[in-house]
Write a protein that binds this DNA or RNA. Structure first.
Lengths: 149, 149
DNA sequence: TTACAATAATTGTCTATACATATAATAGGT
DNA sequence: ACCTATTATATGTATAGACAATTATTGTAA
């Protein structure tokens, strides 16, 4: 469906405005569906992302600031997300031996198990939610990379 | 900057995963900059969007559910956003004469004035934040429209 | 070594999203 | 007219995003 129909706006000021609106709308479309996928597991999309980051380094621990660096949303609060994951026993925190300011975060076995359970569903979801073929995905990735300058 | 560098992830499972991550990351990039633009005016991006919707219909009033329909984020809470705008006297609420369940929302003169002040800044912002030429913007719009199926 | 700047993480506050539920008014069928 | 379903809006609650401020620790330079 064209963005004009989706938000019932016939005209846009210029292609810049249209593309910006289209980005925001499409993101909201993706995120709202994604939320439903993770909900049965009691995870938010950002919590899932943090688990992915931790698994990528496992069994090495990762500091909170490194998590922050790699998060999709740089402004979100890694400290609090980690706290939520810890309450669910999906991650472990320990004082960093070389720098007492830092906190080492490690994914637990339960965390890894949850990711494994989600793996196939997430792959299917990605294919379903993005109705593009591989060539179009490549073009989209290029355009987004260029968009950010 | 390529998405791989931006979030320091060397590889992605497949192009679907990469495009999804790229969408989320790029959206976050846009929204965080957009927030700074509106902040001096005490508006959030969604509040701005609601004002735009109301201006589009002015001087006709618009019901809360119509606003909801046209919002970029369909899951957000139009009722509360309108309440915030009313506190700033940027919109007016009045009972709909033909259906007492509905509430007619109209943008005030102050609301129109604020939009007018923002107009040029927003246009410049859109051009700055999207580092693409017009042909690329068209392609991006097409891909996003197709993406949503 | 002491003083000050820089860094890592946490906490507080406001706004917004997501979603469930509540309240009130209207529409439709009998 | 009456009952019920639907619709429009509002409200409650949990999570998250944006951003300022705080605390604790480390680095650095006089």
């Amino acid at each position: 469906m064209k963005i004009e129909e989706a938000i019932k706006q016939k005209k846009f000021k210029d292609p810049y405005n249209k593309a910006l609106v289209n980005m925001l709308y499409t993101n909201s479309y993706i995120v709202s569906h994604q939320g439903k996928l993770f909900k049965p597991y009691g995870l938010s999309p950002e919590q899932y992302n943090v688990l992915r980051i931790l698994r990528g380094m496992h069994p090495e621990p990762v500091t909170v600031s490194t998590i922050q660096d790699r998060m999709l949303n740089k402004m979100s609060n890694a400290s609090r997300l980690v706290e939520k994951l810890k309450q669910k026993e999906l991650v472990r925190r320990s004082e960093c031996p070389t720098d007492r300011r830092q906190v080492d975060i490690t994914i637990t076995e339960e965390g890894l198990k949850m990711l494994a359970e989600l793996e196939e569903q997430v792959n299917q979801f990605n294919r379903q939610i993005l109705q593009l073929d591989e060539q179009e995905l490549d073009r989209l990735n290029d355009l987004l990379d260029k968009l950010r300058g």
